[in-house]
Design a protein around this nucleic acid. Sequence first.
DNA 1: ATGACGTCCTGCCTGC
DNA 2: TGCAGGCAGGACGTCA
Length: 274
Amino acid sequence: MPELPEVETIRKELTRRVKGSEIRSARVLRSDVVAYPSVTEFASRLAFARIEAVSRQAKYLIFKLDNGMQLIFHLRLSGAIVVCRASIPLRHSRIILYLKDGRTIQFVEPRVLGRAYLIRDGERIAPLKGFFKLGKEPIAQDFDFNYLYNLIKRRKARIKSLLLDQRIAAGVGNIYSDEALFRARIRPTRRAGTLTRHEVRRLVRALKEVIRDGIKNLGTSVKDYYRTDGQTGNFQNLLNVYGREHEECHICMTRIRLVKFGNRGSRYCPGCQR
DNA sequence: ATGACGTCCTGCCTGC
DNA sequence: TGCAGGCAGGACGTCA
């Protein structure tokens, strides 16, 4: 699942590969993935637009176009952006942008949960309300002890659930939250308000570290994530707990445990995490 | 406001 | 081998 490090990797590659390219036309193969505006308007406003820049906010990928519009993608669980020479649809291709130079940018999304939005610069639309409520990203300078502590100190929810809240830790998903909690030696099931100041300090440090390591290693390819050229990332080889349930902890050899709450799985080491 | 939980969606894995 | 059923999970809506 593309989280901040995966989307950041995609952003860098797209900047290198398609910044400055002109879109000749757009084709929507599956209308569900276009959240705004209508499919017809979506396609007509993309035609002949030039890609000025590719940026990222949390897990959102943003193409800035020279016609005053922004093309925004959210990859959700299984989305990918592929740049290739093929003009025919790749497997599970949902949107194709045909470039003037003959290449295509394809939005590949097997599970059809990912979405695309095309808005005017500065326009605020209801389908993107989560985008406008994003909190700070852990790699931001001002994502510090005070920021996190003040947001969670009175909360009774489990710390893991709050880390997944995009209004609190923007860009963090299931993989990096499990890994950060492992590095901070805190169990995902702990009620946020019971964390000591020292633990919150460790958690802030761990979040920054784990996200940076993820970016450095070009993301985590567990299931669906791959890069714009189809290659995988490397961080899956460096995971301590995610996807390692029933295996031994690298530090203390205790078996990694899988617990479920909030409709998702969390992995932790009962030996290292308290 | 908060926390818990259901829903979307489909490929893939498991078990018979 | 083939099929049914369960599972994964980010964001968001609903409910208490």
